[in-house]
């Protein structure tokens, strides 16, 4: 069953980073749909245009949890502009790839991050 997953995916799945919510988050991105089996919430805390903290809560398969964990590591410390440039493919590559069937349904983390940034920009009147 784990055959399709890289060691890196399994490592992030087994010990996911930055799990939880940020109580006073500056932005929250909610993507996916529980009907399809994947739901991801990404929380961000922004200071001086940088992502000071990034956390997640995810309902979903191994790939959904691993990509969530990975995006929090990739985005933390980045500027808003840099973070917006992170793509779904970047996340998959950082995890040494995902099984083809998971590329569409579970690889939602970049979308979640972008949604959280959009939420932040709207709330702070920057957009």
């Amino acid at each position: 069953m784990t055959e399709g997953y890289s060691e890196k995916v399994m490592e992030h799945f087994a010990s996911p980073r930055n799990v939880g919510e940020i109580k006073d988050a500056d932005g929250i991105g909610k993507v996916g749909n529980p009907v399809c089996g994947d739901l991801m919430w990404i929380y961000i805390k922004v200071k001086d245009n940088r992502l000071e903290d990034v956390k997640f809560k995810t309902f979903g398969c191994g790939a959904a949890i691993a990509t969530s964990s990975m995006i929090t590591e990739m985005a933390k410390g980045k500027t808003i502009e840099e973070a917006l440039k992170i793509t779904r493919n970047d996340v998959a590559e950082a995890l040494d790839g995902l099984p083809p069937i998971k590329m569409h349904c579970s690889n939602l983390a970049a979308d979640g991050l972008h949604a959280a940034i959009k939420d932040y920009l709207e709330k702070s009147g920057k957009k």
Binding site: M1, M10, C61, G62, A64
Partner: peptide, 13 residues
């Protein structure tokens, strides 16, 4: 509140 594949992977571990 949880999904089966991640349950399976955890059991597999």
């Amino acid at each position: 509140f949880i999904e089966g594949e991640s349950l399976l992977l955890n059991l597999d571990m």
